[in-house]
Design a binder for these strands. Structure first.
Length: 499
RNA sequence: GGGCCGUUAGCUCAAUUGGUAGAGCUGCGGACUUUUAAUCCGUAGGUUCUGGGUUCGAGCCCCAGGCGGCCCA
C-alpha cells in the first residue's frame, strides 16, 4: 500500500468509476469496448439525405450499418430510443425493440450504454409513429466506450472549460463546430482569392536568428546544435520582401506569428497572420485588394457581404469602405490642428486634458498614434482605412510622395479594432538603413520593442527591390470581424495556463 | 502591472447574521413497445480551489497563494 500510487478506481468520483466498471464488464463478456473496425455502410447525413420526406410509421426495407455518439437516451421497458450524432452535428435516431434484438441484447444496451458512448447500430431505416427518421436495430455494438460523463447538454458550459477542453465544447456546442468550419472556409477563400490573382504562397522561417518586421517583444529559444539563441518570428515581413527582391513579385504567406505579450479579447501570444506583397503596387491598390479579400471571404463562407455577428447584430462589409487620414481625423477629434510638426509637449497636454495616461518618454509619433487610437480608432465601427501615419513609427514604410512627415501606411479598422495594415514599402536601402539605425538607438535607450538592424535584409534591398505594396492581416481578427466572436473562440486551442 | 468579481456534487447553480452544505440535470435501482432534454417511483453522490489565521463553531470573516472573467495601464 503506497501513498504515491496513481488514483485507483475506488478513489474516482462515482460516475467515472461506474463507466470503468462497464468497460471491464464488456471485456469480461467478450465484447471489445474499442473494436478496430465496424461494418458501417452509411453516414447519418447520407441516410438523412436519402430519406428526407418519409411519412410517419414507414418501413423502407433498406438495411444499413450506422455509427454515432449517443447524445440522448430514452429507454422504456421493451423499446429504447437513442439520438445518435456524428461529427458534423447530424442526428439520427436509433430504436431498439425487444422483438428485433432479443432480451439479452436489449438488457445489455440498457446496462452498458451511457451518454457520450460511440455505438454501432445495424438495422432497417424506418420512421417512428411520430415521424422521426430512425434505424430500427437488429443488432448493436459498442464502438468506443466513453469513460467520462458529458456535461449536461442543455446548460452552457463555462468559458474556461470550453477552452481547456475544446473537444467537449465541440461535442456539445454547434457553434463551436461552426466556428472551425468558418475558419477553414475563410483561409480557403483567402488562398483562392490569391491564386486567382496569380499570387504564390510561400513559407518563411519561424525560427529566426534575428527577429524583425514589427515592433514587439519576441519569444526566445535556444538551439543546442548551433549554440545560440533563436527567436520565434514576430512577423514574416523581412523574408517576404527578400522574396520580392528575388523576383516572386506576387507573394503571400498564411502562418503563425508569436509575440511575447499577454492575451485579452483581441490578442493572443500566437496568432495567425496573412502577409502579402505585390511589386508595382502601392498602398492605394493594396487597400482595394484587401477589401476584396475580406469581401470574397464573406461571400465564400456566408454567401453575403452583410454578415450577422454572434450577438445577432448585422454588419455590412459591402461596397467601398471609407477612408480618413490619421492627422486629419485626430485634428477633428481634438478640435485643433495636429500636424507632423506639432511638438510632443503639446500632444502630452492633449493627453493630460483627456485623462489619458501615457508614458512621459513617448515622442511625437507614438503620441499621435495613442491619441488617435483612443479618440478615433476604437470608436470606428464600419470598416475604415486610416491613412498616412507618422514616419518615425513606421520604419519599414515609404515616405509619403507629397505630404512631408507622414508615411504611406494605412490601418484597416473594423468594429474598433485593427484588422490589417498596409504600406507602400520602403525600398531604398540607404534610407532603410537610416531608419533601422534610429530603431537601434531607441533600443539602446531601453525600448525593447524597437527593431533590430538586419544586415542580410539590407543586403537584399541593396540588390534592388521593385516599388511594392505590402499588407499584413490578422487571420484570427478576420474571423472576429466576420463572426463577432472573441479571439479565444476563433482559435481552436488558445494558450491557457496549466490547471 | 493595478482594481473589481468569481471559484461549492460529473455539469449548471443555491446556501439568510458565522450555526447539521441543497436543487435541477446526470448517475444508480425499479416500472413502462413510439420516445424527442421521455415520464413515474426510489436512491446515491461533497477535501466547499490550496495553505494559514480569528472563533465554541467558517462555504461565509481575515492573510497569503493558484486558476479564471471583466475593467484599466
Amino acid at each position: 500500500m503506497t501513498d504515491e500510487a496513481p488514483a485507483q478506481p475506488d478513489d474516482l468520483p462515482e460516475q467515472l468509476r461506474i463507466r470503468r466498471e462497464k468497460r471491464a464488464r464488456l471485456l469480461d463478456e467478450g465484447f471489445d469496448p474499442y473494436p478496430v473496425e465496424l461494418p458501417r455502410t452509411h453516414t447519418l447525413a447520407e441516410i438523412r439525405r436519402a430519406h428526407s420526406d418519409l411519412p410517419p410509421d414507414t418501413s423502407t426495407g433498406e438495411v444499413v450499418g450506422i455509427t454515432g455518439r449517443v447524445m440522448f437516451v430514452r429507454n422504456t421497458g421493451k423499446l429504447c430510443f437513442a439520438t445518435l450524432v456524428e461529427g458534423d452535428g447530424t442526428e439520427l435516431q436509433a430504436m431498439l425493440s425487444l422483438n428485433n434484438v432479443g432480451s439479452d441484447s436489449l438488457s445489455a444496451w440498457k446496462a452498458d450504454v451511457d451518454l457520450g458512448d460511440h455505438v454501432f447500430v445495424h438495422g432497417e431505416v424506418i420512421t417512428s409513429r411520430r415521424g422521426e427518421l430512425s434505424v430500427l436495430a437488429d443488432e448493436w455494438r459498442m464502438a468506443a466506450k466513453s469513460l467520462r460523463p458529458l456535461p449536461v447538454a442543455h446548460k452552457a458550459l463555462n468559458e474556461e472549460t470550453r477552452i481547456r477542453q475544446r473537444y467537449v465544447d465541440l461535442i456539445l456546442r454547434p457553434q463551436a463546430r461552426d466556428t472551425v468550419r468558418t475558419r477553414a472556409g475563410v483561409t480557403r477563400a483567402l488562398r483562392d482569392s490569391f491564386h486567382e490573382r496569380g499570387f504564390i504562397e510561400v513559407e518563411t522561417p519561424m525560427l529566426q536568428t534575428l527577429h524583425g518586421g514589427a515592433t514587439a517583444r519576441p519569444f526566445v529559444t535556444h538551439s543546442n546544435a548551433m549554440g545560440m539563441d533563436l527567436y520565434l518570428r514576430i512577423a514574416p515581413e523581412l523574408f517576404l520582401k527578400r522574396c520580392v527582391v528575388g523576383g516572386i513579385e506576387k507573394v503571400f504567406e498564411i502562418n503563425r506569428n508569436f509575440r511575447n505579450e499577454g492575451s485579452d479579447s483581441s490578442h493572443s501570444p500566437e496568432f495567425a497572420m496573412l502577409e502579402f506583397y505585390q511589386a508595382y503596387a502601392t498602398y492605394d491598390s493594396m487597400a482595394v485588394l484587401t477589401r476584396e479579400l475580406v469581401q470574397e471571404a464573406a461571400d465564400a463562407v456566408f454567401g453575403t457581404r452583410e454578415v450577422t455577428l454572434a450577438d445577432g447584430t448585422p454588419y455590412d462589409l459591402s461596397g467601398e469602405w471609407t477612408s480618413l487620414t490619421m492627422y486629419g481625423s485626430l485634428s477633428d477629434a481634438l478640435g485643433e490642428e495636429i500636424t507632423p510638426n506639432t511638438p510632443a509637449e503639446a500632444l502630452h497636454k492633449h493627453a493630460e486634458a483627456r485623462d489619458l495616461e501615457v508614458d512621459p518618454k513617448l515622442g511625437h509619433g507614438k503620441l499621435v498614434e495613442e491619441l488617435w487610437e483612443h479618440l478615433v480608432g476604437q470608436h470606428l465601427v464600419a470598416p475604415t482605412f486610416v491613412r498616412d501615419f507618422p514616419v518615425e513609427t513606421s520604419p519599414l514604410t515609404r515616405q509619403h510622395r507629397t505630404e512631408p512627415g507622414v508615411a504611406e501606411k494605412w490601418d484597416l479598422y473594423v468594429r474598433g479594432f485593427e484588422l490589417a495594415t498596409g504600406y507602400s514599402e520602403l525600398v531604398d536601402p540607404v534610407v532603410e538603413r537610416e531608419r533601422l539605425v534610429d530603431q537601434a538607438k531607441l533600443r539602446a535607450t531601453g525600448d525593447d520593442e524597437a527593431m533590430r538592424l538586419d544586415e542580410d535584409f539590407l543586403r537584399a534591398l541593396e540588390y534592388g527591390m521593385p516599388p511594392s505594396g505590402g499588407v499584413g492581416m490578422g487571420v484570427d481578427r478576420l474571423l472576429m470581424a466576420l463572426t463577432g466572436l472573441g479571439i479565444r473562440e476563433t482559435i481552436l486551442f488558445p494558450l491557457v495556463r496549466p490547471e
